[in-house]
């Protein structure tokens, strides 16, 4: 069990930041689900709502940034508290970028919904499912200090990368067979790339969690 600070207020401030980060993570997950649903169910209104929802993610990013800076200025945090706060500042950036990727997906979905379906979507939902799971698990690892879970997230990234490559190859065959499919294939390819980027951001978060827990930097190396 984590020992508490002598200052209860300090603990309360850190807990508030934790809560806001969880809230932001939950909203990013909802955005991934909304963007994908707008594509799979050809629901352009949902795509619009998802695009508009990004505003909420941006607002949380600024709010968390602000709270982190206030705690740093007032408390001069050290060691694990310092690692937590610098990490929180970086995690919000990754979460915010995930939101931007969801906006891109929703925009492509809105365009694709105006054209006939090129092919049944099989790999994209699998990628989205895996990426959303990684986001959730990376944040869970951050909250519970679970190093094993963070390592699992880093490993899961491979699955999404593989699916992305597989889909790209498949789309290439569509485009070679029928030039009329190129415009749609490029958009699907773009969505695939967005999901792959979301998984990368989740991996960044997981790597930072490992750093927070162990003080060991695993970025740019194999875990």
């Amino acid at each position: 069990m984590e020992r508490e600070h002598l200052s209860k207020q300090f603990d309360a401030e850190l807990n508030e930041i934790r809560g806001k980060l969880l809230e932001m993570g939950g909203k990013v997950e909802a955005m991934i689900a909304g963007a994908m649903q707008s594509l799979l169910e050809r629901d352009s209104e949902l795509a619009e709502r998802t695009i508009a929802f990004d505003h909420e993610i941006n607002r949380l990013e600024m709010e968390i940034d602000d709270k982190c800076l206030a705690v740093m200025a007032r408390r001069q945090p050290t060691a694990r508290d310092l690692r937590f706060l610098t990490l929180a500042l970086k995690i919000v950036t990754d979460l915010e970028r995930m939101g931007d990727q969801c906006v891109s997906i929703a925009k492509r979905a809105r365009e694709l919904n105006l054209e006939p379906v090129l092919k049944p979507y099989i790999d994209l939902p699998r990628m989205a499912h895996a990426a959303a799971g990684m986001v959730r698990e990376a944040l869970d690892a951050f909250m519970s200090g679970d190093e094993k879970l963070a390592i699992k997230v880093c490993e899961d990234d491979q699955l999404v990368d593989d699916l992305n490559e597989q889909l790209q190859r498949e789309l290439l065959t569509f485009m070679m067979e029928d030039p009329a499919s190129i415009s749609r294939a490029i958009k699907i390819n773009h969505i695939s790339k967005c999901l792959e980027r979301i998984a990368d951001h989740a991996t960044n978060v997981a790597e930072m969690v490992i750093f927070m827990l162990k003080g060991k930097d695993v970025r740019h190396n194999a875990v």
């Binding site: 020992r3 600070h5 002598l6 200052s7 050290t78 060691a79 508290d81 003080g215």
Partner: peptide, 19 residues
């Protein structure tokens, strides 16, 4: 010492968890 101390006691002291 102030970013990643080895000992938990050090960490608890410098982060204001006892003293």
């Amino acid at each position: 010492i102030f970013t990643t101390p080895e000992k938990k006691q050090t960490e608890d002291y410098i982060t204001g968890r006892f003293g």
